[in-house]
Write a protein that binds this DNA or RNA. Structure first.
Lengths: 240, 240
DNA sequence: GAGTGGTCTAGACCACCAA
DNA sequence: TGGTGGTCTAGACCACTCA
């Protein structure tokens, strides 16, 4: 999949740090060794370690704090409350978000889900449905599918305990940090059940947001389909 | 607007290079002085200039080519044909894109447009409408608004000459490079005129894409509203 | 004051490119 | 062959944090 070839030293060091992250050597929020320590233990100069950590920091895998150290990135310290959720109230208000769980069941992966999550077809999955509301108004109907094995402890009770903050739950309960996500956006009309769940008329235009989230090493761990009502909210995207 | 304060040397150098870009000292595609030359003329070390250029490169303002030099980024060398247009065929095919101009007129900025483009209300603007088609099927209805002064030469003929590649035209004809853009996405239903233009039924869900594009120094230069038919295409977004 | 990340320097060698 | 960016080193000083 990757092209090994000759890699600059700093990339080898970056890979080495990533491997130790995958191995769970440092949990989210914990400090990694200082640049000097890493440099000494690896037998390279501090500047080289620095460049490796620079890249990890620019990918939000790690967070630097001057005078304190470098820490494994945590979902909770993301800028906004909602890491990947870029939905913003069009009038600029910052409403609280409420989570209502519709279901949380075990099932088997369909061909499509299996491909997305890079698991065998028919393997066990967890299938979650919920509605997210801003200020009492339903705004998002989410369906979330997880591979069952790494997420064994997931239950309706646990999700409610985290008030629907899924990524925070993954991180603190399963030790799984999401590092990257890919989204496909389309516009769709609300069909019967969806319209009912969101309390809108059938055919209401919705922003469909299909997302695959990846953990360290680009391993897909979550598939999600969000149907968003965008009458009072919009999805913000910065390009450069 | 910005906080001057004390800036690291490399940021001051970055600002200095940006200023010279704004001044038009180097046109898109032209090489900027080598790291050694800049370092010598500014009286700093090569590593410091390097860090300044690193940031400009990571913002796609400048492109490095090993063994050749560093060049002002050009729209034409963007990865895909369509720099900011992230619409992809759902079946993975890469269809050619056709551009049909509906209108290109002079007008006055409304309050909303004036705010978005940071110009005075009522100042002269250019108002363009067009339909983009993939493989003969209309997919996007675009409305593009530009401040008239910097884009004085824009005409229907000129746009057709560039087959609708607006950003390439801005760059080669007006010397204006877009560096950054902010998009707001929502789902809407096609109203009468829109439905006609795209050849779909009224009420068909469309992905509404409102975009402001910025040139050097974060100056807004283009407002755009794209209404996209997403039955066979989707908008791709990578998060990290 | 000790330790951390942040900046800056000076110089070395490498990989790549063009003439 | 000479010039460019890419990597790596070694060491200096600064700004911040915390005991």
């Amino acid at each position: 999949m990757t092209t090994p070839k000759f890699q600059p030293l700093y990339r080898q060091i970056k890979a080495l740090i990533t491997d130790r992250l995958i191995a769970g050597e440092w949990v989210p929020g914990a400090p990694i060794p200082s640049e000097m320590d890493l440099a000494a233990s690896l037998g390279v100069s501090q500047g080289t370690v620095r460049k490796a950590i620079d890249e990890l920091a620019s990918e939000n895998i790690v967070v630097r704090r001057q005078g304190k150290g470098t820490f494994v990135a945590t979902y909770s310290e993301e800028r906004a409350k909602l890491r990947f959720l870029r939905l913003t109230a069009s009038d600029g208000s910052a409403e609280a978000l409420e989570n209502r769980l519709l279901s949380c069941e075990r099932g088997k992966a369909t061909a499509q889900i299996a491909r997305m999550l890079d698991v065998a077809r028919g393997s066990s999955i967890i299938d979650i449905s919920r509605v997210l509301s801003f200020a009492g108004t339903p705004v998002i109907l989410d369906r979330i599918v997880l591979p069952a094995a790494p997420f064994a402890g997931v239950s309706a009770e646990l999700i409610n305990e985290y008030s629907g903050s899924m990524y925070r739950m993954y991180e603190t309960r399963m030790g799984i940090s999401m590092v990257r996500a890919e989204e496909h956006l389309t516009a769709v009309g609300a069909d019967g059940p969806v319209a009912t769940a969101l309390g809108v008329a059938e055919g209401t235009p919705l922003l469909s947001n299909e997302r695959v989230a990846y953990t360290y090493g680009d391993k897909p761990m979550e598939w999600r389909l969000g149907l968003c009502l965008t009458t009072a909210h919009h999805y913000v995207n910065l390009l450069d």
